[in-house]
Each structure stands twice: as structure tokens, then as C-alpha cells.
Design a binder for these strands. Structure first.
Length: 277
DNA sequence: GTATTTGTTGTTGC
DNA sequence: TGCAACAACAAATA
């Protein structure tokens, strides 16, 4: 499931349950695809006996620091999740990366294994972390940068462009649909066809949806909602995009679902027109 | 058996 | 070269 807000929600779970605690054991599934390119024995040696010092989320990715020099990157892929189970929890089939502390069992579970765990030793965060594009909620995510990117991707549908992590880090399928719906832009509009006013609206809704998604899904400040998605309002497209016969929360007209840019896309034809207005 | 999935990457072809 | 489209990855679910 994880887009930027879900990644932050899962990070907080581990963070709230285990920050400052000592890692007593590191359990891994040998050869699991999530460890592709990672030296798993080195990872285990580096974490055992260290404290879970600190963590942060950037886009869809999570960075954890153990002790002063051990960094672990987690990408949740399509089906990954982080949980804090009781100390006595026995890892199951899809629990590929498990950390034991005195009070809890920290679990990274991922049935489809599109997710990833990376490891790095050093005084500063690794290149694969620092090279992630500037966050949507940062000053670096400017209208000008978005406009320039749309010009470069002029012949691709705007839906496909919103999924490109190099410029829209953390946006995934449902957030892209939510943004386009709020901006009243048809997902098949070519990126190069947007007027300056439409581009500005798109940019603004990227900011708003990123902020709203983080606040409602991951909670504000140190608050962690008990369950994923429990606070998402019915007024979002989110709840209606998979319903058969679903209706647009604003126009009350039927929603449409079709593949755009290789992904199933939901929009409100009454609100999102193909021809510029 | 078929088709679907909130993601990313490598290949192909224009 | 740059960009766009698509298959592949894996496993569960309808």
C-alpha cells in the first residue's frame, strides 16, 4: 500500500515502539528478494547489540539509524508493512526482516517482495538516501520545477508523470488520482498541454494532498493513529475509487476506471474533462 | 484458469 | 539521445 503517508505511518510504528531500545536479535529470511544487493550477514552483525537511535521518512522510503554508524533503508514496495508485535511473536512466512528488542518484535512483512532493505556503514547517511528528490512539502518543490518537468514530459499523460519519483517523490497511484481529481484535470491530458493556470493548480494540489495525507494517515506530531486510513474523510476520492458503481463525492456522478499510463486510474468525468476549459 | 493489486526497473522502439 | 510504453518481478485474492 505504501505511498508517502503510509510509509510515515509505518515508520512511526517502529519508532514509537522501539526508539532508544537495544537490538537483541536480527532475524532474516535468507535469499529473500527484499535483500537484493545487500550484505545480510554484515547487516546482522552491525545491528546486534546496537540501539535503534533514530529514523525518518523521505517520499516512500524509511531510513533507520542504529548506533552511530549503521544505516538501514526500507522501501515497502507494493505490499510491505512494518509492525510492532509482542516480544513472544514468532515470525511467519512473509516476515523477512525481524528485530527483537526486550518489549517488542519489530516486523517487516512483504508478501510480494517488491520492497527492499538496504544497509550502509558510515558517519553520514548513504548516497541512496541523500539522492532522493526534494520532498513535495519543501521549498525546493517549486512551481517552476514542476512546469519545467511537465515540458520535458510533454507527450506523456499527466497521470503517468505524477507517478515519476524523480519529480513527485512519494506520490503513488491513489495520491495521483486524488490530486488530479481535486485539480479537475483529466488523467489522460498530456503533460505538455496544461495551461500555466492548470499547472499552478496541479502544483498546489500536490502540496495539499501530501500535507492532508500525512496529517490524516500518519497523524500530526507524535500522534500515531491506531489503524491505517481510519481518519480519511468520505469526501476524498480515496474511498470511492474501488467501489463498483462508485460516485464522485463532489458531483455525485458516476466514476470511471480505466488504465492510464499502465495503472488503473479512477476519475470523475463530470469534473475532469479532456479538453482544456 | 483469468485478472487484479497504493511500485520500480530493464528493454524496446520511436 | 531522450522519451514513452510495456513486460517482468511475486503472491494473494476475487
Amino acid at each position: 500500500m505504501p505511498e508517502l503517508a503510509e510509509a510515515e505511518f509505518f515508520r512511526k510504528r517502529w519508532h514509537c515502539a522501539a526508539r532508544g531500545k537495544m537490538i537483541r536479535a536480527v532475524l532474516t529470511h535468507d535469499g529473500a528478494k527484499i535483500f537484493r544487493g545487500t550484505d545480510v550477514p554484515a547487516l546482522q552483525r552491525a545491528l546486534r547489540g546496537q540501539r535503534f537511535a533514530w529514523s525518518e521518512t523521505k517520499a516512500k522510503q524509511i531510513l533507520l539509524r542504529f548506533g552511530d554508524h549503521a544505516w538501514v533503508g526500507v522501501h515497502l514496495g507494493m505490499s510491505g508493512e512494518l509492525r510492532a508485535e509482542p516480544a513472544c511473536y514468532e515470525p511467519r512466512k512473509h516476515d523477512h526482516f525481524v528485530l527483537k528488542i526486550a518489549e517488542h518484535t519489530l516486523v517487516f512483512s512483504d508478501p510480494r517482495m517488491f520492497g527492499r532493505v538496504q544497509f550502509h556503514r558510515g558517519a553520514v547517511p548513504p548516497p541512496w538516501w541523500t539522492k532522493i528528490a526534494p520532498e513535495i512539502r519543501s521549498d525546493a518543490f517549486t512551481l517552476e520545477a514542476v512546469a519545467a518537468f511537465l515540458r520535458r514530459r510533454a507527450r506523456a499523460p499527466i497521470k503517468a508523470v505524477l507517478l515519476m519519483q524523480e519529480r513527485f517523490p512519494g506520490i503513488g497511484n491513489w495520491m495521483a488520482d486524488e490530486i488530479l481529481w481535486r485539480a479537475a484535470l483529466h488523467p489522460r491530458r498530456l503533460a505538455g498541454s496544461l495551461t500555466p493556470a492548470e499547472t499552478k493548480t496541479l502544483w498546489r494540489e500536490c502540496h495539499r494532498v501530501a500535507r492532508l495525507a500525512l496529517d490524516t494517515i500518519a497523524g500530526k506530531g507524535n500522534y500515531l493513529p491506531p489503524d491505517l486510513n481510519t481518519h480519511i474523510p468520505r469526501s476524498w476520492l480515496f474511498w470511492h475509487r474501488w467501489e463498483d458503481g462508485g460516485r464522485c463525492p463532489r458531483t455525485k456522478r458516476r466514476l470511471v476506471r480505466e488504465k492510464v499510463g499502465g495503472r488503473t486510474t479512477c476519475w470523475s468525468p463530470a469534473r475532469q474533462k479532456l479538453s482544456p476549459r
